[in-house]
Design a protein around this nucleic acid. Structure first.
Lengths: 167, 167
DNA sequence: GACAAATACTATCTGTTAACTAGGATTTTA
DNA sequence: TAAAATCCTAGTTAACAGATAGTATTTGTC
């Protein structure tokens, strides 16, 4: 059980777009370099996000991407369910299959409870929330730029992905 | 993002063992037939659960498996982290890799929050809780055996897996 | 002691998916 | 017209989930 790097990269891309929202278009190249994502790979993600109508794009020179709605109006559930094709945490409805055990098996209830809990966190978190938090973090880093930094939780390989890497 | 069938099958196996706890050993065959799991596959899971010291086994005729602790003393986090090799929901620490972005990226905080929330549900749910709930469900079904049943959430294919099936 | 029933062990297979890559076509601006 | 961007359709590779196979070993019962 994990959150795919596809989802994580896509979320970071959306964060970059959210932080740039009032400054207009942002090119895929800029997103990729800001977030350390292979641009080729990012292309695919942006395409998916565009099909899900979460971003708009303009082609040609000076083109780029922009959120289709203000950051307050897009939440992480929107983003992840677009990228992860349904976010089916329980992984049983994928082909419309329903268990004969439905309603008679208590383990199911737990999976559903987990699903609902995760989904509610995602629903409740908007891109604007992320922007606010990121701004806060950036300021903090600027203030304490010379002190050692550590995090209480693990994360992506920030260097990557780059060619050949697989997180 | 989903809960693997490995985790779900293993949990169901543990539930079966928990329901049988005071009656002694339960053979893999019996677990498989009670929970509709391919016995060969179940073998592997039970081996993992045994290595994690969650179950004890006795070989030979009349052998079988039994929980190593009472159902109140085993929670779902124990079970799933044994089966899913660490339960690393964020999927970044797998090879000890830590992101250069740690502490400077707000999306991380969300993944961590989700992780902690899920883990706390799992910690808080013991096998004894599942047994109690399952008993309740069984009684309910017995009472309303003629009425149609429906569930509010989806689940496994109860027929399977069986040979050739892949959920 | 033979047999049956059970776990234990090691290995293999197969299909799917995640993650990433490639090469170009098209559009627009400078 | 050239550069910079998106758009499109694939292809590749490695890992993994899920399942299977065969056999060795242990133990109870007749």
């Amino acid at each position: 059980m994990h959150i795919s790097s596809r989802g994580r990269y896509g979320t970071r891309a959306m964060l970059a777009l959210a932080m740039h929202y009032d400054k207009g278009l942002l090119s895929a190249q800029q997103i990729a370099s800001r977030q350390n994502i292979s641009q080729r790979y990012l292309d695919n993600l942006l395409k998916v996000l565009k099909n899900a109508r979460l971003v708009n794009s303009e082609r040609g020179r000076r083109g780029g991407y922009i959120l289709s709605l203000p950051p307050t109006e897009i939440n992480l559930h929107d983003v992840l369910s677009a990228l992860e094709d349904g976010l089916d945490i329980v992984h049983c409805t994928k082909n419309g299959r329903v268990c004969g055990r439905s309603g008679s098996c208590c383990t199911q209830e737990i999976w559903c409870r987990i699903r609902h809990t995760v989904e509610s966190i995602l629903w409740q978190t908007s891109l604007a929330d992320l922007v606010a938090r990121q701004t806060e973090l950036d300021n903090k880093i600027e203030r304490y730029v010379r002190t050692s930094r550590s995090a209480d939780c693990d994360s992506d390989n920030g260097v990557g992905p780059g060619p050949g890497s697989s997180i």
